[in-house]
Amino acid sequence: MLLRIDHVGIACHDLDEKIAFYEKVFDVTVVSREINEEQGVNEAMLHIADGEGGGSYIQLVQPLHPDTPVGRFLDRRGEGIHHIAYGVPDLAKAIKEMEAIGIRVIDKEPRHGAMGTSIAFLHPKDVGGVLTELVESPRPQS
């Protein structure tokens, strides 16, 4: 089911400051920035590498407001790893498979993710205490 680690989501207070840090320390490049109102974040995707199943990234997420999921995470835990995301070939199928084996799916229907992806989150209590995101990359246009 899993193609690759798509990205690691890192919660931060200051997106521009964290981008500068990652660019300087790890020599990575921002390939996408967007505001995702639905998720309540300002986000940046930093490219790490490409592989057979697609690219791998670091996703930096800054809350738009303190009462968003990422805002509450920062208040409780401070900056750091927020979630891990795995690339899947068929998100709708993956959601059904997770539900069939008793994994609680937070997003019953795929929703908009960064860079045109479709995403769904799994409940952390059902996957070892880690907020887990499944990501389907957009299909290339023919």
Rank of each mutant, 00 (worst) to 15 (best):
Y22T: 01
E23W: 01
K24D: 07
V25M: 09
V25G: 02
D27L: 04
D27W: 02
V28E: 03
R33L: 04
R33N: 04
E34S: 15
I35K: 09
E37I: 12
Q39W: 02
Q39C: 02
V41R: 00
V41F: 00
V41M: 01
E43P: 02
M45W: 05
H47N: 11
H47L: 13
I48F: 11
D50E: 14
G51I: 12
G55L: 10
G55I: 09
Y57I: 02
I58Y: 05
Q59N: 12
Q62D: 14
Q62V: 13
L64A: 15
P66W: 11
P66Y: 10
T68Y: 06
T68G: 08
T68V: 10
P69E: 06
G71K: 02
G71C: 06
L74A: 15
G78M: 01
I81K: 12
I81D: 13
H82E: 15
I84H: 01
P89T: 08
D90F: 09
A92L: 13
A94R: 01
E97M: 14
M98A: 15
E99K: 15
E99V: 10
I101S: 13
I101H: 13
G102I: 11
G102F: 11
I103G: 04
R104E: 15
V105Q: 11
V105Y: 12
I106T: 05
I106N: 02
I106V: 14
D107C: 04
P110T: 04
R111V: 11
H112I: 09
G113D: 03
A114C: 13
M115P: 03
M115C: 11
S118T: 03
I119E: 08
I119Y: 08
A120M: 08
A120K: 03
L122W: 09
H123V: 09
P124H: 06
K125T: 08
D126R: 07
D126A: 12
V127P: 04
G129E: 06
G129V: 07
V130E: 10
V130T: 13
V135G: 00
E136N: 01
S137F: 00
S137Y: 00
S137V: 00
R139D: 01
R139C: 00
P140R: 09
P140L: 10
P140V: 07
